[in-house]
Amino acid sequence: MADLVLGLASSHSPQLSTPAEGWAGRGERDKGHLELIGTDGITSNFEDLLARCDASRIAKEITQEKFEQRHQQNQKAISHLSKKLHDAKLDVLVMVGDDQQEYLLDDNMPAFCVYWGDQVKVAGHEAGPSTGGQHLIGYHTEDQYAPTDSSFGRHIIEQLMESEFDVGRSSHLDPRKGGRAKGGIGHAFGYVYNRLMTGDTIPTIPIMLNTYYPPNQPTPKRCHNLGQALQEAIASWPKDIRVGILASGGLSHFVVDEELDQAALAGMQAKSVEQLIALPREKINSGSSEIRNWIVVAGATEQLDMTVVDYVPCYRSPAGTGCAMGFATWE
């Protein structure tokens, strides 16, 4: 029987791999964002958000000293998770992440999609405007091909169907598709390969959630139920292997919402479905929608205990834009 021995969760924002001196530049580019969800739940452009925010409080969060301090916190937490992943000696890693029209496009975007091909392409990172013309720290510039576990992936698909989850499935990545991942797996998964798998590449099963795009975003309760069904599917695999599950994404962004993040973390630590269902739905959209990935892992690891390794609210502009980085383990 497969044994689910470890859960991990990590933000995957490019800001994690951007040197501290590049954060203000990312904040400048936020001025062009037209749909920023404020901590009040109101969606607006940058200027309107700036007019509503607590400018004096945020001014203390966007100094170069703060940028450097939080950058170092992030790197320490990434190293911690990477070591946990390495030390666990996993045979398979189930990865739960969102696809932002990188592979799954509007021609067919299921709420849940399990990949069960023999390998995945991880697109190399190219310098561009979003990174100030510099390659991201720790990212490969060339395309990579990473192994997956197709037989275990098929088993998970079959067991989820038995659990009445009508999941989408994909057995190959189409290089002809016009998504941003250049025919490869999306950045939620690329982050894991580039920043967390520092040793030998672990065979994976990528599970893609449509956290971003209405009208078929799964509810927090449905995500939690999916996690429970995944745990059952893993436990029913007859091979004696060690399995981990990882959530990639979150926490609140593109506006940092510390109250939302703490409510989500508290609900997961308490193993409280009621607290997770109570999260304000108008706020878990856009980048903050990736909290759903964490909820799936929380549902899958109810037999384990969650530890928040670090919570790092990385502000980058006077309007409070940025990304709140979260790092957690279940053991």
Rank of each mutant, 00 (worst) to 15 (best):
residue 1 M to W: 01
residue 3 D to E: 14
residue 6 L to K: 08
residue 6 L to C: 01
residue 11 S to H: 12
residue 12 H to T: 12
residue 14 P to C: 07
residue 17 S to M: 11
residue 19 P to Q: 02
residue 25 G to M: 12
residue 25 G to L: 12
residue 26 R to N: 08
residue 26 R to S: 12
residue 27 G to R: 07
residue 29 R to N: 02
residue 30 D to V: 02
residue 33 H to S: 07
residue 35 E to P: 00
residue 35 E to C: 03
residue 38 G to K: 06
residue 45 N to H: 10
residue 46 F to E: 04
residue 48 D to H: 12
residue 48 D to N: 15
residue 49 L to V: 03
residue 50 L to T: 00
residue 53 C to N: 14
residue 56 S to M: 11
residue 63 T to P: 01
residue 64 Q to F: 07
residue 66 K to R: 15
residue 67 F to R: 01
residue 67 F to L: 02
residue 70 R to Y: 14
residue 74 N to Q: 13
residue 76 K to S: 15
residue 77 A to V: 04
residue 95 M to Y: 03
residue 95 M to H: 03
residue 98 D to I: 00
residue 98 D to N: 11
residue 98 D to R: 01
residue 99 D to W: 05
residue 100 Q to N: 12
residue 103 Y to S: 09
residue 103 Y to M: 11
residue 104 L to C: 11
residue 105 L to R: 06
residue 108 N to R: 13
residue 109 M to G: 01
residue 117 G to V: 01
residue 117 G to N: 03
residue 120 V to M: 13
residue 124 G to E: 06
residue 128 G to H: 11
residue 130 S to M: 11
residue 130 S to T: 12
residue 134 Q to H: 13
residue 134 Q to E: 13
residue 138 G to T: 07
residue 139 Y to R: 06
residue 139 Y to C: 05
residue 145 Y to C: 05
residue 151 S to L: 15
residue 151 S to H: 14
residue 152 F to W: 03
residue 153 G to M: 08
residue 156 I to G: 03
residue 158 E to R: 12
residue 163 S to T: 00
residue 164 E to Y: 11
residue 164 E to P: 00
residue 164 E to V: 05
residue 166 D to G: 02
residue 171 S to T: 14
residue 179 G to V: 10
residue 179 G to Q: 09
residue 180 R to V: 02
residue 182 K to T: 01
residue 190 G to N: 09
residue 191 Y to F: 15
residue 192 V to A: 10
residue 194 N to I: 02
residue 196 L to Q: 07
residue 197 M to I: 04
residue 197 M to C: 12
residue 198 T to E: 08
residue 200 D to L: 08
residue 200 D to S: 14
residue 202 I to V: 14
residue 208 M to I: 14
residue 209 L to E: 06
residue 209 L to R: 05
residue 211 T to C: 14
residue 212 Y to E: 04
residue 212 Y to T: 01
residue 214 P to N: 07
residue 216 N to E: 07
residue 218 P to V: 05
residue 219 T to F: 06
residue 219 T to P: 05
residue 221 K to W: 00
residue 221 K to Q: 11
residue 223 C to K: 03
residue 223 C to N: 08
residue 228 Q to P: 02
residue 228 Q to S: 13
residue 229 A to Q: 05
residue 230 L to E: 10
residue 232 E to P: 00
residue 232 E to Y: 02
residue 235 A to S: 10
residue 236 S to A: 15
residue 241 I to Y: 02
residue 244 G to T: 10
residue 250 G to K: 11
residue 251 L to P: 01
residue 252 S to D: 03
residue 255 V to L: 00
residue 255 V to R: 09
residue 257 D to T: 05
residue 258 E to Y: 00
residue 263 A to F: 02
residue 264 A to F: 02
residue 264 A to S: 05
residue 266 A to P: 03
residue 266 A to H: 11
residue 267 G to M: 06
residue 275 Q to W: 00
residue 278 A to N: 09
residue 278 A to F: 04
residue 280 P to S: 04
residue 280 P to L: 05
residue 282 E to C: 06
residue 283 K to H: 08
residue 289 S to P: 04
residue 299 G to V: 12
residue 301 T to C: 15
residue 302 E to M: 11
residue 305 D to I: 07
residue 309 V to G: 08
residue 311 Y to E: 14
residue 311 Y to A: 12
residue 312 V to G: 01
residue 313 P to V: 04
residue 314 C to A: 14
residue 315 Y to T: 03
residue 318 P to D: 07
residue 320 G to S: 07
residue 320 G to K: 10
residue 322 G to Q: 07
residue 327 F to W: 06
residue 329 T to A: 11
